[in-house]
Every structure is written in C-alpha cells, then in structure tokens.
Simulated assay, not measured.
Amino acid sequence: MSALHYWNYPTEIFCGPGALESLAQRCTLLGMRNPLLVTDPGMLGLEPFALLKSHLTQADIVFSVFSDVASNPSMADVAHGVAAFKAGRHDSLIALGGGSAMDAAKGISLAAVDARGLERFEWSQVMAHYPTLADFPRLGLPPLIALPTTAGTGSELGREAVLTQTEQNIKRVISHPELLPATVILDPLLTRGLPPALTAATGMDALTHHIEAFCSPLYHPMSSGVAVEGIRLIRQHLVDACEDGQNMGAREGMLIASAMAAVAFQKGLGGVHALAHPLGARYHKHHGLLNAILLPYVLIANRETISVDIGRLARYLELEQPDFEGFLAWVLVLRKRLGIPHSLSEIGLDAGAADWVGEQALADISSSDTNACALDAADYSQIFRNAVQGVLQGVQA
C-alpha cells in the first residue's frame, strides 16, 4: 500500500504516505482562507504538528492553533475553542490528532454556528427528532479537514462527537450530518511516532468498533461487510504496527481499518462502549484502553446471542479454531501480546461504583440500545465487576 489512494466513502479521502501534500489544494478548493488548527497539547512538540505547520506555512495559508483540549474533550474545551474561533475570525477548521482533537473540532464547528447545538443534537434528541439524515436542519457549518495521527477512533469518518459533561461525569454523543469532515487525509507518516502502548490501545479501540458493529442486532449488511474486512486488516497489521512503528504498510493498514470502523458502526456499537463512556468520564482513563480491557467480558455476556455470527467471522479470519471460543481466545492472545492489562483493577479501578456504572451504561442509549442482546443495569454492573476482578467464566487470561 505505497501509492496514494483517493476514495469518497462517505467523504473525500486521500490515503497513503505523503497524502499530507494534498492539504493545501483541498483548503483552496474548500475556500479555507483562515482555518483554526485544533490539536491537543501533547501534539505541539511532535513531528506531525511540525510537518503540518510547515506545509501550511509554505502554502501561505494563514492559521491559528487551538490546543486547549483534554484527552477526553469536554463541553468547556469546546466553549474555549469557540471563543478562539470567533476571536480569530476563522472560517474553517483543521483537526490534527486522535479522537480528542477530532471531537473537539467537530464540537467547535457546531457550537460556533449554533449556540445550542450541543444540546439540540445530543443523541437522545437526535433519536427523538431526526430519524434520517435528511431530517436534520441545514446549518452551514464551517468546513473541516481531519488528519488522524492515531488509528483508533475513526472519528475522521464519523458524523458524531463524543464530549464529556464534566459536572455529571458523563459523556454525551453529539450528532449532525455536517459534522462529517469535508476531507480526510490518512497519511501513515503522521502516525510513525506513536508509542507502542498507544498504538496498541487505539488499535484495540478500532477492533472493538468493528466487533460491536458486526454483532449489532440492526440489519445493515453494508456495514457488516465493512466490519468483517476491518477486523481482518487489524488482524493483519496491528501487531506489526506495534512492534515496528516505522512499518508504513502496517501503519497505513491500521489507519484504513480505523477509518472503516466509523462506516461500520453506522450499524451501532454495544456494551463495551456503553461501559467505557461513563468510566472514561469518571476516571479519565484512555478510551481505547478501556475498550481493550472490557471487550472479552462483554463478548462473554453476549455469547449466546452472537456465537453463530462470531463463528462465521472466525472462519473468514481463518482462525485455527473457527468458533466463538476460538475467536475469544484470539482476542485474549492479541491483548496479551500487545501488553493490554487483563483487568480494570490493573489500571486503578475498583468495583465500588458498580451500581452507578451499570445505571450509566444502560442510560448510554447511543451504545446500549444496539448491544447484541438486551442487558439491564444489573447486567452491566456485573460485567464491570467481572472486568475489575478479571473473572472470565472459566477462561484463563
């Protein structure tokens, strides 16, 4: 995968080493004369930020930088970003980084145009008032170009932003069709400095997106097909990307798989995300790492419902044991090889808030409503306890 690829699915995508070189032309074509570059503070001293700044400067594109973005971006971060957007009279946005930068940029784009947008287009409101994309009001949001530096969230191809409401320690999913970036640039050169632990956690995030989408009870065969191929790409590339960060083929394969996940989870997510959202908001742990730890516990909770479909998936992946048990064993071996902890207690969580976690997981209808089987708050609380204690119903880690 060394050539530059161009796709439009579901938006314009440039993919391959050196894809960054297409940025200036896309800015011109989109009428972006004064973009606000949104990133996180950790990115400011890294190679991707230097490359992007150099590219924009050489192209005589005027821009400012907003980097007051937390790893789990909050509504307050967005408010600060809106102030910067308006103060600089910006007409567009460029997001550089992982999901935090992408989600913050989307939130800024929406709130800069509609002061009540984060409230109006929160997931429960979307479900109540906008059953199809055509039902949303046209807002004329400023154009956004997304350049991911991690291969995990897939936010660059999504119409959603996940933002933390700090006062309540909960995450809100905001959705509007115009949040989909106008252009996505998947350049593996921007990911080559990502440390192995973050490569692993973000890669497992992408894997979780695909698995939960594949297992969703909603009927969406196109997304199911994307999920199956996305899982295969992760099986092929994730370990190599972790073991050799300069392997551009593996890095590119993971970027593609991550972006594909946002297409796959049009079909829905599930219990892993329903649990990870409140845990991330309350304990400020990395979203991908939470997903990676929780994944096998939710797979087991869903086993009776998903075993046939997981068996088909295992056969496609050519696993040695092509059934649910073989697939679960592959996930556990992959986690161990990547250095993912087996239990939530290993990252400092205890089961004291289990009842709260269960209630919040059930209330996260953006994910719990499309879990493979119906789970109640008590079920989610027990899954959380199992994940804290490392209990996998007869399975050895």
Rank of each mutant, 00 (worst) to 15 (best):
R159E: 10
H237Q: 10
I293D: 04
L207R: 06
V239I: 11
W330Y: 12
G97D: 11
D60S: 15
D114L: 04
L23D: 01
Y297D: 01
D103W: 04
A259N: 13
P10G: 06
A87E: 13
P131Q: 12
S381K: 12
I347C: 09
A151W: 01
I231N: 13
L139E: 05
P35R: 08
Q389S: 14
G253C: 05
G268W: 11
P221N: 05
D309K: 11
S71L: 13
A374S: 15
A250L: 03
V357H: 08
D364Y: 06
V184D: 03
L96R: 07
F63S: 02
T191M: 14
S71Y: 05
D379L: 07
H55I: 00
L238E: 09
V298Q: 04
G288H: 04
A201Q: 03
G158I: 01
H220N: 15
A50H: 14
I108D: 02
E12P: 00
E243S: 09
S155G: 14
R159Q: 14
A3H: 15
Y297W: 01
E167Y: 01
G270V: 11
A134P: 00
A50K: 13
Q393V: 00
A257S: 10
L179G: 09
I347M: 11
P188Y: 12
A79L: 07
Y380I: 14
A276G: 13
E160M: 09
A261N: 01
N169I: 00
L313V: 05
W330D: 05
H237W: 13
G230A: 02
A59Q: 06
L133H: 07
A262R: 07
G45D: 09
L299N: 02
A182E: 10
P188A: 14
H55R: 15
H287M: 05
E243A: 10
A264G: 06
R303K: 12
L96E: 06
S216W: 12
L392D: 03
V391R: 15
Q25T: 09
M32L: 05
L180D: 06
A329I: 01
